[in-house]
């Protein structure tokens, strides 16, 4: 009755569309196939069914890849690699967990492989602080609570710090401290045991503190 009352209150010209939306009769709109249907179609040999999957998940994969690669060309390579692997390994997706979880595991492992392949770049990450970074440090030294104003400089410092870490340490710090995932979640994403994640997290924190000390100008230590 409430619904009918609401329809009467609407101008006559909009009555039909209101009726359709109120009673869920919007059946004329094509229903998009869900992940399971698309995956089944790809498995049957319909390669084009993979395109909606790529379209749906690519923003999330781009965001993940941007945590580990700085250059946009590298980010694109990582994302492309993730989807190519997903297509190749689609038969190994059992469907016990959501497809997104399976895809994110693949993405995190691909990012880790990328970090290991580009380990040499870590050496070049040692450079003097820029003027903005120095200014941020100065502000932080005088008033730690007020240093949140120039977040860009702080983020540049974090990026510099993360680039110096070993691949395993960088992955753990990113997942644990920045994305705030639990140890169990990290174990599931990386394929490491819970104990291995804890050990690597401990080492990563120590490594980060060491580099932070090196990065901080002597006058503040």
């Amino acid at each position: 009755m409430q619904a009918l009352g609401a329809i009467e209150a609407i101008a006559p010209s909009r009555w039909l569309s209101a009726f359709v939306s109120e009673f869920g009769l919007a059946a004329s709109r094509p229903v998009e196939p869900d992940d399971q249907q698309l995956i089944a179609a790809v498995r049957r040999g319909d390669t084009s069914a993979f395109e909606p999957i790529v379209r749906k998940y690519q923003p999330r994969i781009f965001a993940t890849a941007r945590r580990y690669a700085r250059r946009e060309s590298e980010v694109e390579d990582i994302v492309q690699e993730v989807f190519l692997k997903a297509f190749q390994k689609l038969d190994s997706f059992r469907g016990d967990a959501p497809f997104e979880h399976w895809l994110m595991r693949l993405a995190v492992r691909t990012c880790y492989d990328f970090l290991r392949q580009h380990q040499r770049n870590r050496e070049t990450a040692v450079a003097d602080l820029t003027d903005d970074e120095e200014a941020w440090m100065e502000r932080f030294a005088t008033e730690p609570a007020g240093a949140e104003t120039d977040a860009d400089a702080a983020r540049a410092l974090v990026q510099r710090l993360l680039e110096r870490l070993s691949p395993a340490s960088r992955l753990v710090i990113t997942l644990l401290e920045i994305e705030e995932k639990s140890v169990k979640e990290i174990a599931a994403l990386t394929g490491w045991s819970v104990t291995a994640v804890k050990v690597r997290a401990f080492r990563a924190r120590a490594e980060m503190r060491k580099f932070l000390r090196q990065m901080t100008p002597d006058k503040y230590l």
Partner: peptide, 8 residues
């Protein structure tokens, strides 16, 4: 402070 800036 750095990690919270990265989180934000």
């Amino acid at each position: 402070a750095l990690l919270s800036a990265a989180k934000r």
